[in-house]
Amino acid sequence: MRSIQPLLLACAAAAPLSAWAQSAVSVNGRLDLGVFRGFDGVAQVGTVQRSNIAISGFEDLGGGVKAVFRLSTRFEMDTGQSEGAGRKPFWHDESTVGLQGSWGTVRVGRAMTAMWAQDWKFDPWCNFNRIASPAWYLWHPLTPSDPYGNNGTAEYGRVNNGVFYDSPTVKGFTLRLSGSFEREHEPGASGLPYSTVLEYAHGPVATMAAFERNSVGDKDTFVAGKYTIGAVAVMAAYDYSRQFDAVSQSRATTLDATYEVGRMTLKVGYGRQRLNADVNHFASIGADYALSRRTTLYASLGNKRDATTDARTSFGVGLAYAF
């Protein structure tokens, strides 16, 4: 045995070099922290636009096929704790593995549904600014993607035990599907959850149509469009969210715009929601200033006018670093 050990060691040393040439692992994410006064009137330091760290990678399997994976967790910059510590899973954001080829990408695990993973493209604040994003407050309010996804509490956006498919783009069209084959054994669960999206993007035009149903039968219909001309982008969206028994329904319309001038991006948004018999309004403005390719200084201001409460205003400034 001793005589072949050098050969075995040489083979073991050479094998990883071949694998490394065809695979890659990367670490990326976003760090965000701001000083703001919330809609509750309380001044605080905290995450305004979410912070996350992700590990992702691929391995080339040959024949145009790759194995892919992604692990991503979200956390609060002001305390260092995981977002929803003790309630949400550690890999709250995503934990998937899959295959990618000329036929598209298939992943399995926990991730955003097809609708939630793409709607951010039609909101100036990417549906994750707790001060200024109309989408954050008005879209999909009655349709949690998984009513039991976080230790028995609702998850708005992700499903566990999911299957996710993104098609290749053909003449500007992309089909995205997600769902789960595992039936939930919870009170009220009546079927399998699914989400479907058809996107079109060509030149200055981008559109999206989506439909989602969760495991208890709540449904959401979402359509949106965006038009970009030079430094100006205008976007609009309509969201119809309703509970399975149709007792509660929400119809929301948002209209937003961005304008880029030098390193600064100016943002404005407005949304109107009819929630059952109540009419709610949300208006906001903001500005992002790119200190560098990765670092952005921003200011946000939002105003909520709900049918049942007095008008409330939130404002703040923050710093975001993407890596």
Rank of each mutant, 00 (worst) to 15 (best):
D32K: 06
G80S: 06
S102R: 07
R107H: 02
G38T: 09
L31H: 05
V25Y: 09
A135L: 05
N28C: 02
F69V: 04
F75G: 02
L33G: 09
A85G: 00
F58K: 08
G62N: 02
D60I: 05
F90T: 12
W103D: 06
R50L: 14
A43G: 12
W91I: 09
V65D: 05
M77E: 14
Q118Y: 00
R37E: 06
P16L: 13
A21M: 01
V97L: 10
N52V: 08
K121R: 14
S95K: 07
F39W: 07
A117T: 01
V25I: 10
N127V: 15
A12H: 06
G109C: 08
F122L: 07
W116T: 15
A43F: 11
D93S: 13
D123F: 01
G41M: 01
G29W: 10
G34D: 12
T47G: 11
K121E: 13
S56L: 03
P89K: 07
R130L: 13
G29M: 04
S18D: 11
F122E: 08
S82N: 15
G46A: 09
Q100E: 12
V68Y: 03
T73G: 05
L61Y: 02
G63F: 08
Y137S: 08
N127S: 14
T113I: 12
R87E: 14
G80D: 08
M115D: 05
S95C: 09
V48S: 03
V65T: 08
R107G: 07
T47Y: 05
W116V: 15
E94G: 08
V97S: 05
Q22G: 11
V25W: 09
E83Q: 14
G104D: 08
F58V: 00
N127R: 13
A111I: 01
D119R: 11
G57T: 02
S51C: 04
G86A: 09
P89L: 02
D93I: 00
W116F: 13
D32Q: 02
W125P: 09
G29F: 09
S95L: 12
D78Q: 10
N129P: 11
H92V: 11
V27G: 05
T47W: 04
V27T: 07
V45E: 01
R50E: 10
L31A: 02
V25L: 13
N129E: 10
G38V: 04
G84Y: 05
M112L: 15
R50K: 12
L99D: 03
Q44T: 14
